[in-house]
């Protein structure tokens, strides 16, 4: 016997010190922030309070993007295209969606973030990344 049960629970996560700055910049100014690690000499995007590599504290956030390079991509069964994007000025890749174009993407191609009109302070304030020329290749 198989029983199907729903689980329906609302969660509310505190973004915390650095991620709050990151999300507020997305929402209010359509800016993408990253944090430099002074010890590793890398710039981590999205901004976070400690370096994922060495564990040390990060420095004051800096602007990266909004243009960047497509690192890799895959098309999901529901038709959305998931991508790793290396924003200009950052040393780590951001997971996001690709938008527009004819569905033909090539690793290494140039991209640009497209921001939504009404933004709420969430990573989805970036609607997706599109070809820097405004369309797919």
């Amino acid at each position: 016997m198989i029983r199907t049960e729903s689980i329906h629970i609302p969660f509310t996560y505190a973004a915390g010190g650095t991620s709050s700055i990151f999300l507020a910049a997305l929402r209010d100014e359509a800016r993408i922030l990253a944090t430099p690690c002074p010890a590793c000499d890398t710039v981590i995007c999205p901004a976070r309070s400690s370096c994922p590599a060495c564990g040390g504290p990060t420095a004051t956030p800096v602007d990266v993007g909004p243009a960047g390079t497509l690192v890799s991509w895959t098309e999901l069964a529901d038709g959305t295209t998931l991508a790793l994007v290396r924003l200009d000025g950052a040393d780590t890749s951001l997971v996001h969606r690709l938008a527009g174009g004819d569905g033909t993407w090539v690793a290494g191609q140039r991209l640009r973030a497209r921001f939504g009109e009404s933004r709420t302070g969430a990573i989805t304030d970036i609607v997706g990344f599109e070809s820097e020329n405004g369309a797919g290749r």
């Binding site: 996560y13 505190a14 915390g16 010190g17 650095t18 991620s19 976070r48 309070s49 400690s50």
Partner: peptide, 13 residues
């Protein structure tokens, strides 16, 4: 009751 000044990772840190 609420440590909304930090994320989970920052709390652990």
């Amino acid at each position: 009751r609420r440590r909304d000044d930090v994320s989970q990772a920052e709390l652990v840190r």
